[in-house]
């Protein structure tokens, strides 16, 4: 048996290709990126050693706090929305619609498989004001409100961005959390019901505590994905007006390719990496403490 499971040549055969690609595409470039961050310039214009200049520039750049704040605000609002609405939908599937939830589940999940650019272009038109008022402004007008020019101010554009990304992604979280609810043993819910728990009490005392692990996992997953937002905003309004709705990722991309400054781009990329790491660790810790408290 050791011949079969400890066969060195076979181990190399199965493991080496994956390891080689992984080292070539992830590990080496990560180190290379660190080197870039102490240079200025690009391969096209040539590199010059800059020491810690990029890091000093990072702290002095007024756009950095702005894009960082936008990224955090976006990720927080969207994650809360994804989890709260996703969980509500999951409860609806499990306890109200029960077996007949298949159609609604299929429908709500569909936007998840669509290209983000297509969705962004669609939402840009839904909220359009030219050449004619789009459907959203028409509805506002119908209820007697004033039409809004959605892409002229950052706070209005933020509303569109959140609406778009909720529409695009909430189905995924609804289904993930629905799976979590399916895992709660039917006997537990049944015996709680016999003991007189119902409605909100049943939800708060039995269902929520029992689905905490899956909610925790979904939150970390959502935050990590939301902190890396790029394509939907790029296609919707390119982070405008100005840099009012530019996330860190988009700023890094623009600095690197539009302004040809790879060293600074790599420094911003390091900031993004640090941010994801910190957020993951903080969320993970707080959730674990929560679980051990009970």
């Amino acid at each position: 048996m050791r011949q079969v499971f400890g066969n060195r040549r076979a181990i190399a055969f199965f493991l080496a290709p994956a390891l080689l690609v992984y080292i070539g595409v992830i590990v080496v470039p990560v180190g290379w990126s660190l080197v870039y961050s102490v240079f200025t310039g690009s391969p096209a214009s040539g590199f010059a050693f800059a020491g810690l200049k990029n890091f000093r520039a990072l702290f002095a750049d007024p756009t950095i706090p702005q894009t960082l704040w936008f990224t955090v605000k976006y990720a927080t609002v969207l994650t809360v929305g994804q989890i709260v609405i996703g969980y509500s939908l999951a409860l609806l599937f499990k306890f109200v619609l029960r077996r007949s939830s298949t159609f609604i589940r299929t429908l709500v999940f569909f936007p998840v498989v669509l290209p983000t650019v297509a969705i962004a272009l669609l939402f840009a038109q839904l909220f359009a004001v030219t050449p004619q008022a789009g459907p959203v402004d028409s509805i506002i007008h119908l209820f007697g409100g004033h039409p809004v020019d959605w892409f002229v101010s950052g706070s209005h554009a933020f509303v569109v961005i959140i609406a778009m990304d909720m529409w695009r992604s909430v189905g995924l979280f609804a289904v993930i959390l629905y799976v979590g609810l399916l895992d709660i043993p039917e006997e537990v819910i049944e015996s709680a019901r016999i003991d007189g728990a119902s409605g909100f009490g049943l939800l708060r005392r039995i269902i929520l505590p029992m689905s905490r692990p899956i909610v925790a996992a979904a939150t970390i997953f959502a935050l990590n994905a939301d902190l890396k937002v790029f394509d939907s905003i790029l296609a919707l309004n390119n982070g405008g007006p100005g840099t009012a709705t530019t996330p860190l990722n988009l700023y890094m991309f623009q600095e690197s390719f539009n302004y040809d400054n790879w060293g600074y781009g790599s420094t911003i990329a390091l900031l993004i990496t640090g941010l994801s790491l910190v957020v993951t660790v903080v969320v993970f810790r707080s959730l674990r403490r929560d679980i051990t408290k009970d």
């Binding site: 050791r2 066969n7 181990i11 990560v30 990126s33 890396k228 790491l277 993951t280």
Partner: peptide, 27 residues
């Protein structure tokens, strides 16, 4: 399969989940 260091290699590979695409694109 059974060999020394497989836990470490799995950890090393899965650690890639932490690396955002932006960090590797330019190199």
């Amino acid at each position: 399969l059974v060999f020394k260091g497989r836990g470490g290699i799995l950890f090393f590979l899965v650690g890639g989940l932490m690396v955002p695409a932006q960090l590797v694109l330019l190199p």
